[in-house]
Amino acid sequence: MDERAFYVLAYDIADDRRRLKIARLMESLGERVQESVFEAYLTPRELERLLKRVERVLVVEEDSLRIYRLCGGCKGTIRTLGRARLTPPPGAIIV
């Protein structure tokens, strides 16, 4: 079984219709943490499937998607302020 990695995905989509489609794709696999920023725990296969779906919508001359994979050590250095909270791994129980 493929191991999940923690990703931060951020997009800048020029067109409202494309932006909505991309947002729905991201929401299907991750958690929205800002208007156009998502956090997700993905396997390599899930990431590739997501990227193929995004490529069908995204216009490379107008839009952008950034994908940051964070290692366990890097993830441990994330700092948040205000209401922000780090997305828990799948299956984690928050009390």
Score class of each variant (00 low, 15 high):
V59Q: 13
V59K: 15
S28L: 03
Y11M: 07
P44Q: 07
D16A: 11
D16L: 02
E35L: 15
E39S: 11
E62F: 13
L29R: 14
I13D: 01
R49L: 05
E35W: 15
L47W: 09
E55R: 15
V33I: 15
V60H: 14
L65Q: 05
E55I: 00
E55S: 14
Y11C: 06
L42P: 03
G30Y: 09
D15G: 00
S28V: 02
E31C: 09
V60Q: 14
M26Q: 07
V37K: 06
V8K: 05
I13H: 01
R56P: 00
E61N: 12
R66C: 04
I67C: 14
R66G: 04
Y41S: 06
L29E: 07
K52Y: 08
D63L: 14
V57H: 05
Y68N: 04
L65E: 01
A14P: 00
R66F: 08
R53H: 10
R56G: 05
E48H: 10
L58I: 15
Y7N: 06
A23C: 08
L47V: 05
A10V: 12
R17W: 05
L9C: 11
A23Y: 11
K21D: 04
D16N: 13
E61M: 09
L70N: 07
K52S: 11
R19T: 01
D12Q: 06
D15Q: 07
C71R: 08
Y11F: 14
I22V: 15
R53N: 10
I13P: 00
V8S: 12
V57M: 09
R69I: 04
E48F: 07
L29W: 07
R19E: 02
R18N: 11
D63P: 09
E27W: 01
E39V: 01
R32G: 10
R56Y: 11
L29T: 12
E46N: 06
L9N: 02
D16V: 03
